[in-house]
Design a protein around this nucleic acid. Structure first.
Lengths: 203, 203
DNA sequence: GTCTATATTCATCACATGGTGAATATAGCG
DNA sequence: CGCTATATTCACCATGTGATGAATATAGAC
């Protein structure tokens, strides 16, 4: 029996170590944020020497940006939401937002960025600026045709959504954490619609 | 000139080192969360040897609980909010909540707890349980007299408030971060009222 | 004035962190 | 075959971390 080699040198089996490292990094960054996750922990999770992490990605920061790549740029999802009857804008937005957070390939990196933004004060600014201009700005501009909406109103809508995600996916507060998407849409879509368009809100 | 002593032994001047440590700890925990703040950093901020921190408080965790003490228990503020015309419940709640976050003696510890809860997964559970049962539960029970409100609705209201605080005080997203309390109340109070009582919401 | 309690620092431990450079083994090309 | 590029680990380094125990100086009680 040829016992599995363990030591320096290229191994005979070509398991994809690089992918394993990315997986492990993704999970750890999502769970503990940037500072909470360690290169050694990532390596351990991938069953690999810490130096290999540096070999592939360079610095820890580069591991982070590599692991946080989203499968689709968030901005690319917006047109689909913004097109259509403005009276259902709120619902479409909430549905897309919650849906994206249900997909593991989105949720993990977004959790990582969110958790990191809460601590690494520099990351907070970056994320804030991105979300603020790249996403909220486009929503604001698209809502009203010409004038757009008061940015404060858009941010109030964003706050409602961010709050739901934090209570649901970070704090895991019950029953919110186990509610269905439809239940949450029913509660939150009218609020978002109200914030964005000032519509009446029926209970 | 009697140069200020520097070295071991009790100093002649009796500056309140203990309070200085608590101050420094509060600021650091608020800025960086539990794991991000270090005992050495706290000591440095207080102009003091790290061992003195341990001398006074024992472990880092005990420093944390000592520093996170709020001037008033949040539950004690609730009765004032819950009493009065139910039609203005949302506004009273939002006003109190935002007001509390403007007071530095509240904001610093709450930021510390929030930032820590986002990382130290154990802290998230604790905070979630406390907020969930001690606060939201009482609001839910008080709103409708007998039956109370669907907890999901209460948590949707909480999400709106939490989201505002995070965008305003953690991410510091403009213009939300610089908006006046009254502006935010105008936007958010109707939403909270809607969530809690299902009232109509006029734009 | 002596004695004890307390405030403060120093020296140190054991361990984790991010990172580097060299060693070693395999793959793949000529 | 030989040569080079690559994958992988090993052995370190400098620094930061929470924590402990001893040393030293003052305060306050008797």
């Amino acid at each position: 029996m040829t016992t599995a080699r363990r030591g320096p040198g290229r191994p005979a089996d070509g398991g994809d170590r690089r992918a394993a490292i990315l997986d492990s990094a993704l999970k750890l960054f999502a769970d503990k944020g940037y500072t909470g996750a360690s290169v050694r922990g990532i390596a351990r999770g991938a069953g690999v020497d810490p130096a290999l992490v540096h070999h592939y990605f360079g610095t820890k920061e580069q591991v982070f940006v590599a692991a946080m790549r989203l499968p689709v740029s968030p901005g690319d999802l917006l047109p689909e939401v913004l097109a259509g009857d403005p009276a259902q804008l709120g619902e479409r937005l909430v549905r897309m937002f919650l849906g994206v957070w249900e997909r593991p390939d989105f949720r993990a990196p977004m959790l990582g960025m969110l958790r990191s933004a809460m601590t690494a004060e520099q990351g907070a600014a970056m994320l804030g600026e991105f979300v603020g201009s790249a996403l909220l700005g486009r929503v604001a501009a698209a809502v009203d045709g010409v004038g757009g909406v008061d940015p404060l109103r858009v941010q109030a809508a964003a706050a409602q959504l961010v709050g739901v995600v934090i209570l649901r996916h970070v704090i895991a507060l019950e029953p919110l954490a186990s509610a269905t998407t439809d239940e949450i849409v029913a509660l939150v879509a009218p609020v978002v619609q109200f914030h964005l368009t000032g519509s009446q809100l029926a209970g």
